[in-house]
């Protein structure tokens, strides 16, 4: 789109992205604890600040003031790099996400590709963190995280390819512009493919599995693997994994919003803007939290069976069906 690189705008947006990731994560932690509290008939945090809003800032301060303990036998470099490998790609992905028509750091034509390229680096962070900390639980967890991510990236990417066939662009803002009101949201475009709602479901489940969220949080299954890949991490090392998880949840939900739910477009065609985008994203995030506090955890083979035997065949079928529909109509 805009060819010239506007350096101040880019730096400004990067700072804004980092600030947003941190702020968003702390708010999501607060929200998660409140949602969990109400689902479990408790109140949740309420002491620090109004409605306990500053609870996560207090937690963050505590994490930052803690010593970064590096275990003696660990691979020091990998151990320290791993949290960054989770956090940095997450922040980079924010660069291409259109919050509204103009509120996007770099509106580039391969936005979708950029996000998936960065999302794949995330796994590397988990694996290196597990391997580098020289802990048996962490190693098992790292191996789990990789097989899980590989298994779920396939149906996710097949679904995204289907979407690209329909939208004929990888520019996220253009995808949003194609969905001006609720009847043009891709989730309801049954003329493009009758399986669109299923595609949305597959995408949503896969993004949940990609971000290691319950019920797919096998990597950090605390009843089996203590804390998984971040068992040995203290202080902000753990904090970065934690922030990265919430940033990834946000990215997954915003992608689902952009691809299927009209992004920043209003459902009624009036007052489009950033508020619609945030409303939709946070609704999806609420669903993610809801699932986490309702379901028990799956097992690794249950998870892989779901991916290879159900999600991949359906998404492949959807791909073929969409191709035929596009050719015929």
């Amino acid at each position: 789109m805009n060819e010239s690189i506007n350096i101040p705008w880019l730096v400004g947006s990067l700072v804004a992205a980092i600030a947003f990731v941190a702020l968003n994560a702390s708010m999501l932690v607060w929200l998660e604890r409140k949602v969990a509290g109400h689902i479990q008939r408790r109140i949740g945090p309420k002491e620090v600040g109004p409605f306990g809003l500053f609870q996560s800032f207090a937690d963050g301060l505590k994490l930052m003031s803690k010593q970064l303990i590096v275990p003696e036998c660990s691979d020091r470099i990998l151990f320290k790099v791993a949290p960054l490998l989770v956090m940095v790609p997450a922040i980079m992905s924010f660069v291409v996400i259109p919050f509204s028509e103009n509120l996007v750091a770099r509106n580039i034509n391969i936005g979708l590709l950029v996000i998936f390229a960065f999302a794949s680096v995330n796994v590397l962070g988990l694996l290196l963190g597990g391997w580098g900390s020289a802990n048996k639980y962490a190693v098992i967890s790292g191996a789990r995280a990789v097989s899980q991510n590989v298994a779920y990236e396939i149906p996710m990417l097949v679904t995204v390819v289907t979407m690209i066939m329909v939208t004929q662009t990888m520019n996220l803002n253009e995808i949003v512009l194609q969905q001006p009101d609720i009847f043009h949201w891709y989730i309801f475009r049954l003329n493009a493919s009758p399986l669109m709602p299923v595609a949305f479901l597959i995408f949503f489940v896969c993004s949940m599995a990609e971000t290691n969220r319950a019920p797919f949080d096998l990597g950090e299954a605390e009843s089996e693997l203590v804390a998984g890949f971040h068992t040995e991490y203290a202080g902000m090392g753990f904090g970065l994994f934690f922030l990265g998880e919430y940033a990834n949840v946000f990215i997954g939900c915003s992608l689902a919003t952009i691809l299927f739910l009209g992004g920043w477009q209003s459902p009624f065609g009036v007052f489009p803007g950033v508020w619609w985008f945030l409303l939709k994203v946070y609704t999806l995030i609420f669903v993610v939290m809801w699932a986490r506090w309702t379901f028990p955890r799956t097992t690794l083979y249950g998870l892989l069976n779901l991916s290879w035997k159900i999600l991949i065949p359906i998404s492949l079928f959807n791909l073929v069906l969409t191709g035929v529909m596009l050719k015929v109509f």
Partner: peptide
Amino acid sequence: LGGFTPLLY
């Protein structure tokens, strides 16, 4: 089994 909520109920 990873389900936290039933505990509190």
